[in-house]
Design a binder for these strands. Structure first.
Lengths: 218, 218
DNA sequence: GTCTATAATTGGATAGAC
DNA sequence: GTCTATCCAATTATAGAC
């Protein structure tokens, strides 16, 4: 997989390089390492996995990992960052596209669940191992997540104004939907039918959680 | 708090002692230790917290902890076990009581969310640090969780048969509801109004997720 | 049941050759 | 960029006095 954040390299005007890379994919080794590490972290937990174990999985010695990452925590950060940067940079624009609030939120949730299913272990690690990040790195991740959540809340609120959703608290509903969807990464199996999964959860979210104000509960 | 599982002590006929204990609460120190440990585990992660740190929080030295728990992992196990035994032993009977499936599920969810809110850090640790348990201990916990989930699925299915719920897949819906509810432990604040929280989530679950089959999505 | 002292191991990270 | 060899700090757990 690509999508493992590269270290910040000064570049032309300081902006991100075009997505079509010229060379043979710089940091391909980084991606391999991060991918192997994510598998181990997901299965055994960040702290129980040693650098030697990760190294062995990609065919090198522990010390050689430090040619690609400055520390073990940097590997975890790269994994967690990829799991928040992609949603923010690629899914959030779906909320700014044409269409009704419900259509735009549906597009975002579709992309979100597909991304989660395609990167299940990374997603799980990014959710679960936040405490192992340095405070600075953790702040970056939580900022991304807060922004994402805020944008979802806003489109829910827009849907309420447009008469498409019926919820008391858009903030609560947004959190509930995201928790429900992110919960998938805890139990998803490789043989799960992702198309069916996506449509089921779209129904649970858009026709369920976001339509819950239908009758009074005692 | 009470509710920290005691080690298995041979007792009369081999059954659990009556819940009203004779002495000055045996293992009160155990409960204090587990409570302090859960706070640290929740904030910094299991592996980054040392026995010395836990010990200091309860006013003793690291070595003295071993008079109450045989290992650090035993502390974690006690925390995780309390968070699955209470739901199974105290909440599941609500599903076997009188009333319609929706009423019984409402009672269970109320109890579940209240328990979660009353033991937020323990609940979070029990969810997040499963990988740090020994395989044997982890198996006990996951067995409890699977049983709980299965019982929720069954009452959802009963509600569908009774015409109270409208879902395609009771299993999927049960998982979605539990993920949504358990997500609370990640963001709950001490100043949150728990009564309001409980009723909001009952609405999201019973009138939302479990009523989602209302129209066809393209 | 708590203490001081320490054993024993682990595991992240570095040095320096190639 | 990878290797071998090693350092060094941290930490769980134990021994044994009180």
């Amino acid at each position: 997989m690509t999508g493992v954040p590269e270290p910040a390299v000064p570049d032309g005007d300081g902006r991100r390089p075009p997505s079509v890379r010229p060379r043979t994919v710089p940091g391909r080794r980084r991606a391999e390492i991060a991918e192997a590490a994510a598998r181990f972290f997901a299965e055994h937990g960040y702290h129980t996995v040693g650098m030697r174990e990760i190294a062995e999985a990609v065919g090198m010695r522990g010390a050689s990992l430090y040619n690609h990452f400055s520390s073990k925590e940097e590997i975890l950060y790269a994994i967690a960052l990829a799991m928040t940067e992609v949603p923010v940079e690629q899914h959030i624009p779906l909320l700014d596209a044409e269409g009704s609030p419900a259509d735009r939120l549906a597009a975002l949730l579709r992309a979100h669940i597909r991304h989660l299913a395609d990167h299940r272990v990374e997603h799980l690690v990014g959710l679960r191992e936040l405490a192992a990040l340095t405070p600075e790195h953790r702040a970056v991740i939580t900022d991304h997540r807060r922004y994402y959540q805020r944008r979802v809340r806003d489109v829910v609120a827009a849907g309420v104004r447009a008469g498409q959703f019926a919820v008391d608290s858009p903030g609560r509903a947004a959190v509930a939907v995201l928790d429900m969807v992110n919960g998938i990464s805890w139990w998803l199996r490789p043989d799960t039918d992702v198309d069916e999964l996506v449509e089921t959860y779209l129904g649970l979210a858009l026709d369920g959680v976001l339509q819950h104000a239908r009758e009074d509960r005692a």
